[in-house]
Structure formats: structure tokens, C-alpha cells
Amino acid sequence: MTDSSPPFTRLDVCNRFLESVRHSVVLGMEVVSAEETAVRTRLPWREDLVGNPETGVMHGGAIFAMMDHAGGMSITCRTFPVFEITPTIDFRVDHLRGPAKGAAVVCEASCYRLTPHVAFVRITSWEEGNEDAPIATGLATYTRLKIDKAGQVVGQ
């Protein structure tokens, strides 16, 4: 009997992917879970990420950056255990409501269609603990770059 499963999990790969992307680390982004069909990440509220000093609401750009990276991770989970570099082609985000001051934002990204060159991804964000009331929804496409040893960027 041989076990052909790789010695690392999707969560391991997503965490390495996160650690290798400085902007996401500096934002304070965390990976919550990583399954073949969906990835969850969270972004704790922080004073320096505020977009409107009068309300204390987190800036849409910070939420966008997390959703963009989570979208990339959702592709990683589909191509697992192979890691590919997947630059964003386009991304649309709708801000449904402002997250409350102090609340962490959680997002779930799902790659619902993967073709040889393009990945189609849906992303939803909500305030932690309030999953039934999304604050933002996103729709994005990414392109799959075929780069030898791409996995070593985050894998080793």
C-alpha cells in the first residue's frame, strides 16, 4: 500500500501563499479554512485600515485586497497540489453595506469554473459572526500562468 497524497494540505499551501505576499501579511490577513471548493480568510479591524475617520469603517481597498488574494487561493485549492501563479484579469466588487467599526471581516472565495487558461471566481464578505448579511460581493477572473517550479515560490 502506498499513500499518494501529498505531505501537505490545502491549508498549508494557502498559509505559505499568504506568508509570501507581503502586502497581505501587513494588512493582517489570515487563512481560516481551505477546501477544494472554497477558501475562507479573515481580516481583523485595525485603526490604520480605516477609510472614513468619522465612522471608523474599514476602507473598501483593504477589503478588496483580501478578497482578491482569497480569490487567488481558491484557485490554488482547485489546482492542489500543483501551485500556479494566477494574476487577476479583472475584479468587480459591490459594497452592500459598511462593516461596523471594530468588526473583523471574513470572506469566502470559490473558484466555480476552471479552464486551461482562465479561472472564474466568486467572493463574498461579511462581518465576523454575521454570515447571513454580506457586506461585499465580488466576481473575478484570473489567468493561469504556466511557470516551471512556481510551487517553490510558496511551497519550499
Partner: peptide
Amino acid sequence: DNVIGNPTLPALHGGAVAG
């Protein structure tokens, strides 16, 4: 350094540019 996405290229994080 804080707006870097891909460290090997290095390239800016698309999210930072969007923000």
C-alpha cells in the same frame, strides 16, 4: 515594501493598487 504582492518578480499587490 508593504505594497509588494509577488515577492519573486517582485510585483505590486493588485489589491494595493486597487485600494
